[in-house]
Each structure stands twice: as structure tokens, then as C-alpha cells.
Amino acid sequence: MGSVMDTVMGSVMGTVKAELLRLWKWPATWVLTGVWLVMTLTFGYVFNYLALSGGTNTRDLSQQQLIGSMQPENAGAAVVRGLPMFGGAIVLVLAALAVGSGYGWGTWKTTLTAGPRRVSAMAGTLGALAVVVVVLVALTFVVDLGAAIAVASLEDWGWSLPGWSAVEAVGASLLIAAMWTAFGVFLGVATRGPALAVGLGLMWAVVAENLLRGVGSLLGPVESLTGVLPGGSAGNLAGAVGGSGAPGVLNDLSGTTAALFLLGYVVFFAGAATLLKVRRDLV
């Protein structure tokens, strides 16, 4: 039993290593990471700073709110508030491309004839993407914290380093990003290609749930449903850990309920993708 476990773990680790090597050298990984970091800086700090220093504050945020959102101690909240919609969409695109492209390039064929079982190959792919997500969230936190410290120093505000709430916010960010990643992986496997997977994923993350929320204001049951959909759960968790003032952030569910829904989605999407990968012929 022990040796079987060792073999399985060995092949999973081999696949993780292989996937990390190719994801590290994949321009798409860095382009999407760069786009996300620019977005989080622009919408989290640059625009707020411009509004604070005499620009037009169209969101009617008080000066105190603007300063609060840019404080270093709120860097965790700055990370999590961007993830329910736009950050999530970027992570979803990365995952859908990473998995879906393998069908067009023929690399799934090479992967599945290399030795690992299909379950191990999928576990390795998911493991490598999990590492990417952790690095992405950590990088976002570092960049946001750096920007916040720069603004605070520039404006000569008194500031303090983030506390426990930042850990909570980063943890929530990881869970939200993991859900969108698993969603992207599922779409990549289900559609067996990158284009449709990315299209469907973006439609869902950016358009479909927003439309449903619009309908929800007319129909009560739909409104209840939107809160527990993937984007809705992500928005509720972000709202529960202090994220606010960004599209997709909600305050309808408790943090625990939202986190449980997200966990369920991660298990469902990863499980469904693995099941499809194991059962389908690769032609």
C-alpha cells in the first residue's frame, strides 16, 4: 500500500514539476499576471489617489474612505475586492488556456502517454495551477502593500502594517481564485479547446451573473440564487472579509456560508474535470 502511494505521489509530483516548468516559461502566464497587477494597481490605488488629490470623485466616496482604502493595513482587502469579478475572470482565462490549449497542441496526448495515470496527470495540472494561484495572490498582496506604503509615505500619513484581517482577506482571495481556476480547468476539459472555454468563462464571470442579478431585482427566487452562484459566492466572501467598493462584491451571505459554497464549487469543478478526463477517449 505504501509503495503504491509512493508511486502515485511520485507521478503527481513529476507532473506538477513538468507543468510548473512549462507554465513558468509560458508568455500567457506573465501577460495575464501583468494585466492583473496593472488592473489592481490602477483601480485600487492610481484612480483613488487621483480622486483624492483633486480629481472628480464620481463614486461620492468621502476623503476618509479614499484614504482608508489605500492604507497599508487594508492591503488584504484591496487584494480580495478585485477577485470576485475581474481578477477571477483573469485567473479563469489562465486556467482555461492552460488546460484547453493542450488539446490543440496535442500535448495532452504526450502527457497521457508519458506514464502517469490520468488522475495523477490531472492532479499534477491542478497542483501546478494551485501554485500559480498562490504566487499570483501573494504577488498581488506584495504589490498592493508596496503601493499603499508608497502612497502613505508620499502623503505623510500615519500607517501600520496589516494585521490578522489581512491574513483572512488573503485566505479568502486564495479560495476565490481557486474556485475560478477550477472553473477554468473544467471549461478547458469540457470544451476540449481554449477558445470556447475562454469565451464561455468570460461570459459567465463578467456577463451572465450580472444579468441574473439584474433580473433578481424583479424576481425574488432569482435574487436568492445569484448570491450562491460562483461569482455571487466569491463576491459575498470578499464582502465578508472587508472588500468593498468594487464590482461583484456583495454583502448578502455570511463569510462562512460563502466560503462553504466556494469550497463546494472547487470540489465540483475539479472533480467533474477529472472525471471527464479519465472517462473520455483522447482522439
Partner: peptide, 9 residues
């Protein structure tokens, strides 16, 4: 099988 499957980049 049916041509090589590699990462183009």
C-alpha cells in the same frame, strides 16, 4: 502518435 505534441513556445 500522429505527429509530435509539444508546447510551441
Amino acid at each position: 502518435i500522429e505527429g509530435p505534441g509539444f508546447y510551441p513556445y
